[in-house]
Computed example of a mutant assay.
Amino acid sequence: AYVRGLKARGGVVRTATPARSIKRNGPVWRVDDVATDLVVDAAGAWADAVAARAGVPGIGLQPYRRTIAIARVPDRARLRGAMVCEVDEQFYYKVEGGDLLLSLAEETPVEPGDARPDELDVALALERVEEATGLGLRSIRTSWAGLRSFVPDRRPVVGTWPDHPGFAFVAGQGGSGIETAPALSAFAAAVLTGSPLPADVPVDPDDLAPGRG
């Protein structure tokens, strides 16, 4: 829906097109062959790397790896629908079809890159969830990993550095990117274009600006 809306407004989506050159010339930024007065760095775990390519200070973003797996459940009749998070965040699990999705809820600092599941984390998550549930979990159907990126205060970053107008960050959503995207996007659009802030996003722009106190 978002892509359709963008295209309906004349936007263009370029895939497999790395930004090799990002340079500022007065009020205009040039990203390869595109000239614009506003660059939005929404590159996730790579946001600081993109900023460095543009000669802009980073925001102190740290990616963390989290591994998730799907475990086979021998007796599916015993499954219940609730999601369960261990009180000290040592693991969580929830029903996924007839199987069980589980994770250690770990945050392992890593460099930006294609995250790979850690076999030890998968095994430990399986052990902890089996100990808690007694479901007879013994094998994994599949596993994957993703990156959750935070700045030190663990709040998103929206805005520009004062000395680098026209280069804006929208980054640092941690593990809540999908859930927060509609509200944060509306908020960011207002902040970056100088439009009125959305009434249903009661956030002070200074609280999410780069370099906030």
Rank of each mutant, 00 (worst) to 15 (best):
F91Q: 04
K94T: 12
K94P: 03
K94E: 13
V95M: 15
V95A: 14
V95L: 14
E96Y: 05
E96A: 10
E96H: 12
G97M: 01
G97E: 10
G97A: 00
G97V: 13
G98Q: 14
D99N: 12
D99E: 14
L100S: 04
L101C: 12
L102T: 05
L102H: 07
S103N: 06
L104Y: 05
A105P: 04
A105R: 02
E106V: 11
E107D: 13
E107T: 12
T108Y: 00
P109K: 02
E111A: 15
E111F: 02
P112M: 09
P112E: 13
D114M: 13
D114I: 14
D114H: 06
D114L: 13
A115T: 04
A115F: 05
A115S: 11
R116I: 07
R116S: 03
R116W: 05
P117D: 06
L120T: 14
L120P: 02
L120H: 10
D121L: 12
D121A: 15
D121C: 12
V122W: 03
V122T: 08
V122A: 02
A123K: 09
L124Q: 12
A125H: 00
L126Y: 00
L126G: 08
E127I: 03
V129Q: 00
V129W: 07
E130R: 05
E130K: 01
E131R: 15
E131Y: 06
A132K: 08
T133A: 01
T133E: 08
T133F: 11
T133Y: 05
T133C: 07
L135V: 06
L135R: 01
L135P: 09
G136K: 02
S139N: 06
R141D: 13
R141N: 02
R141I: 13
T142P: 02
T142I: 07
W144C: 03
A145H: 08
G146S: 07
G146L: 05
L147G: 04
R148E: 07
R148L: 10
S149M: 09
F150H: 13
V151I: 15
V151N: 08
D153F: 03
D153P: 09
R154T: 14
R154A: 14
R155E: 14
R155Q: 15
P156M: 07
P156R: 03
P156W: 04
V157I: 13
V157G: 02
V158R: 00
V158M: 11
V158A: 01
G159K: 04
T160K: 03
W161Y: 12
W161R: 09
D163L: 12
D163Y: 11
D163Q: 15
H164T: 09
P165L: 10
P165N: 08
